[in-house]
Design a protein around this nucleic acid. Sequence first.
DNA 1: CGCGTCACG
DNA 2: GACGTACGTGACGCGC
Length: 944
Amino acid sequence: MDSRNHLYLVDGSAYIFRAYHRLPPLTNPQGVPVGAVYGYTTMLWRLAEDLHQADGPTHLAVILDKGSITFRNDLYDQYKANRPPPPEDLKPQFPLIRDATRAFSLACIEEEGLEADDLIASYARAATAQGWDVTIVSSDKDLMQLVGQCAQGGAGCVDMLDTMKNQRIGIPEVVEKFGVPPELVGDVLALMGDAVDNVPGIRGIGPKTATKLIQEHGGLEQALAAAPGMKASKLRESLIEQADMARLSRQLVALKEDCPLPVPLEDFALGPIPPEPLAAFLTTHGFTSLLRKLGAPAPVTASAGAGTGESAASAPAPVESTRQALPTWPAIDRDAYPCVQTMEALQDWIARAFAARTVAIDTETSALDSMRADLVGVSLATGAGEACYIPLGHRGADMFAEAPVQIPREAALAALKPLLESDAVLKVGQNIKYDLTVLARHGIAVAPIDDTMVMSFCLDAGRGETGVAGHGMDELASRHLGHTTMLFKDVCGTGKKQISFAEVPLADATRYAAEDAEVTWRLHQLFAPRLSDEGGTRVYQRVDRPLVPVVAQMERHGIRVDREVLAGLSSTFATEIARLEAVIHEKAGGPFTIGSPKQLGDVLFDKLGYKGGKKGKSGQYSTDQSVLETLAGQGAEVATLVLEWRQLSKLKSTYTDALQAAINPDTGRVHTSYSLVGAQTGRLSSNDPNLQNIPIRTEIGRQIREAFVAEPGHVLLSADYSQIELRLAAHIADVAPLREAFEQGEDIHARTARELFGEVNRDTRGRAKTINFAILYGISRWGLATRLGTSADEAQAMIDRYFERFPGIQRYIHETLESVRAQGYSETLFGRKTWFPRINSKTQAERQGSERAAINAPIQGTSADIIKRAMARMGPALAEAGLSRVKMLLQVHDELVFELPEDDVAKASEIIHAVMAGAAAPAVHLTVPLGVEIGVGPSWGAAH
DNA sequence: CGCGTCACG
DNA sequence: GACGTACGTGACGCGC
């Protein structure tokens, strides 16, 4: 047993910010928000529990920030100037953090003019100098500079503990994160800067480049000194020009290790924790299950609700039950998984899965495209530490090596099929749509299913510091399980040396694949109760989960694309592009790369001397469409030519060339992949290729839609919601005149024009249309002014007029923002949440951006919910009408595209119309009708 | 890899 | 008073 002293330094301020964002907005019995306090309290509890462990704390102190002005502001007045003020419902929690610390009878240190980081650094140094070990409880990257410090004979060691991820951070973890040892972390930070603390760094250098430079040169000063000798580049210039900024940044990120210590180290010694003050604190705030653990009787009244406004049907459990229920699993041991190579072993696992009733599955394949990938193996997980890998298509490492022993693929799949199709066993996957598609190609219809990626999306859309919380497995494992997964590149490598999963040795493949299944299983255990506690059940169960197999089937159907039509367009475009290029070069007085905005800007504004060039932040002239149109309006023919060149280049490279390459050789069709978690509002997104942005607005682009065709004897049917977002705005904001107009089937923009201007003509209708859209997108007078070509004052007058005629809109905007500011998220009519972590940002642009997005999200999101409900119902409705030959192929936000036999058109139109128009009911009764327009034709173009 | 640009709803 | 910001996406080419 180690008798050395071990000091724990808790970075309290950083912790509560993270706890605040991760935990639901709980309140104590007095109605005071305590979500972050609760998280903090449980963290202290867990640390206190380690008190008797061999490696546990002998001394502990909580370090807090005090005030906001520190010596760093003397170095750089902009330091932390971008920091948003804490959210309103976090502010009252700060003093409670001190209360909580005192309740545990622990030391709490804060000093004016010093950041918590500096106090931590100074205490860490003092402690290690005396030979103590130190653990810093934080995940702050600045503090990673302190890790290690094991140097001078017998002195103590420093590591970090991220309690949220339950992860120890030692030298290897720091090297993994920064690519350099702790003593060089400050140099990397100085180059990359830090947007949150407003440390400038060097513009254009991010984490990758910063790490590379420090690795190569061994330090900041060395890198700066080497700059003049580098080959001419933007990077070289930046390093030379901004060297002083980098040096300033280096000072800002340096930790002050010689602060006077306000309280001597010895005073942090831990003894048994006196229960009385703690019990009183827990009682006051209604932390009942911790009270129970303490052995005190829980008061009956102390159950604080989550206060999310959910209906009684999904009444939240008592305050901390969600967190308290966190299972205590053993750490993931990826070396312990069996590789299933015999039929007997496989049958054993199938039996276990039937008994468990829930099995996580993951398929391993040879490619990312689920329509082209070959199945290489399947992994299963039935519990913590219970996972296996079943190799099915592994090869030898090279042409001379024998393939490893495997169950023949078809035999194994035949054995798995009853399990995967059994109603009695829930199959859980991370992005299970992929596995559904792969297995469907082998005749297996996997059901019923849950998807941890989609569950995460229903819980946490928009969450996370960047505003975009990832929902990928590696990120979820790290965030929720504190586990760092093996990465695909760890087993297959990257770039030229990348190998197919089929060539991975079975031992590695088993570690990787079975771990993924186990992680998925664990995530499912966490997410299922969270969904019911946090009110996400409704939208997950009723909207997104049913959609998964539907979308998988749409992807599998794909759409027929006529290669000849595309090739013809490509060649026409190529000729015209070449002609334009010649003329443009002639007018420019010499050749240049038209596709380079940089070169084009120089040609237009420097060489040809046109006026009106504006350089942006990057020092480059803007040459976007609006700029070129302005020039063209002033008679610059070259601008017109460039616009034409741009249009054709775009169409050729993005569509007519790329779509030909996207035709699947096996099916002869194009299969997009939809992301169910791509858009924060709940919309789908489409990729590889994106079939949601096929041209339609210009005649020349529209020709591309002619290439999307039906099979012989069939037609394409396009059904789209007309003005769905405006209709929803009229319903949600209760705008009587707009509702009435929709009921009467009036032209909605004309009606708006009549309300705003008193008369309807081409001009007023156009302006009204612009304003209607501005409302949906979250209005700003400047934005509207730009679109209308008027002054901001006139735009403001227009907005005032709009609010006056449609007071419901103003009320909606006000109430939506109030609610998002207080709760942190918006909600659609069907209960889908979108989080806006920057809604209270101090940076105006950031805050206003969030506000506009928050105004738009309930409308765009409700529209997304409605079409998703229609999609989920479409298959059964068509089947019931005997229309099983009708296939749904595409979704483009407010449009569905079907392929069907010509004979089915009349009957199918009726069903499709009914399903789409009625998709909100019965969950939501809309006070406006949903209009659906249907078109039919031999091609997508003709169906519009 | 970051940026500018542009295709869609 | 200014921010050449109206919301949400994905893909391409350029230049490093």
